[in-house]
Simulated scan of single mutants.
Amino acid sequence: MTAPSFPPTRRRCLLAAACLPWLPAAFAAGGESPRRDWPPQRQTPALELDRIEGSTWRLDSARGRPVLLNFWASWCEPCRAEMPALQQLARERGSDGLQLLAVNYRETEAAVRRFIATTGLDLPVLLDREGAAAKAFGIRIFPSTIGIDRRGRARFVVTGEFDWSSPQAARWVAEL
């Protein structure tokens, strides 16, 4: 069976549509901030996901602690590149109560375990097996990180790879 052949105009439209999700990250790389504030009228989605080690983690159980949810996938090179800075941030700010969780997007548990074994990832890993959590938070670009304050309210979304060891990141985390 051969692939369908689309007219040149339709092909260009399909290609443009396929590229749309990456445009915000491209602009962020050009100097604009990759952060956008969470809309005040939008509720923070409830979240309950399995941890890689088998227990369940619920966002409402983190009330009183600031939370960063980093949505990632092992096939995502920018995700892999930002992991060391996220791990360092978790080590430095964990004593302040910061909870930093790596939410894996739709990969098998075996694939996630292989990634952890080969990279030494030591952040708590949650499994978004069907992608429902990413969808609820409006995540379409990886990596993306959601900042949630001590009251359990989403405050911001950082889209694309970001230097979490930067002074800007420290200010954003302090807001939480």
Rank of each mutant, 00 (worst) to 15 (best):
P84W: 00
Q88M: 13
A62F: 07
R114E: 15
E82V: 13
I148H: 13
F142G: 11
Q87I: 11
R80S: 10
F71Q: 08
R151F: 04
I148F: 12
S165K: 06
P167R: 00
P124A: 13
W75L: 06
W57L: 15
D96A: 14
A132Q: 08
V103N: 02
S95P: 12
A73D: 01
F115W: 04
N104C: 13
I139K: 03
F156A: 15
Q168C: 05
L100W: 01
R150W: 08
L100R: 03
V157H: 03
L101N: 03
E161H: 02
Y105Q: 12
M83E: 02
S165H: 01
S95G: 13
G120Y: 06
A111T: 11
R93N: 10
T118L: 13
L98V: 10
E161C: 05
L69H: 11
S166W: 01
I146N: 06
S55G: 13
S74T: 09
N70R: 03
A62Q: 15
A62S: 15
S166M: 12
A102C: 02
T56N: 04
F115L: 12
Q88C: 06
L69S: 07
L100I: 07
D128V: 10
P143S: 04
L89H: 03
Y105N: 05
S61W: 01
G120L: 10
G94M: 10
V67G: 09
R63E: 01
R155I: 10
L123T: 05
F137C: 08
W72E: 00
P84K: 10
E107A: 12
V158W: 08
V125Y: 03
L127N: 07
D96F: 01
T159C: 11
P78W: 03
E161D: 05
A90W: 05
A154Y: 03
A133R: 04
L123D: 01
I141N: 07
R114G: 11
V157D: 11
R151W: 08
G120E: 11
A90C: 04
L127G: 00
R151Y: 03
R91A: 15
T145C: 08
R93E: 15
F156C: 11
D163R: 14
S61A: 15
D96Y: 01
E77F: 01
A134H: 00
P143H: 05
R91P: 10
G97T: 04
G152L: 08
F162M: 09
W75D: 09
Y105A: 11
W75N: 03
F71E: 02
G160W: 11
D122E: 14
E77W: 04
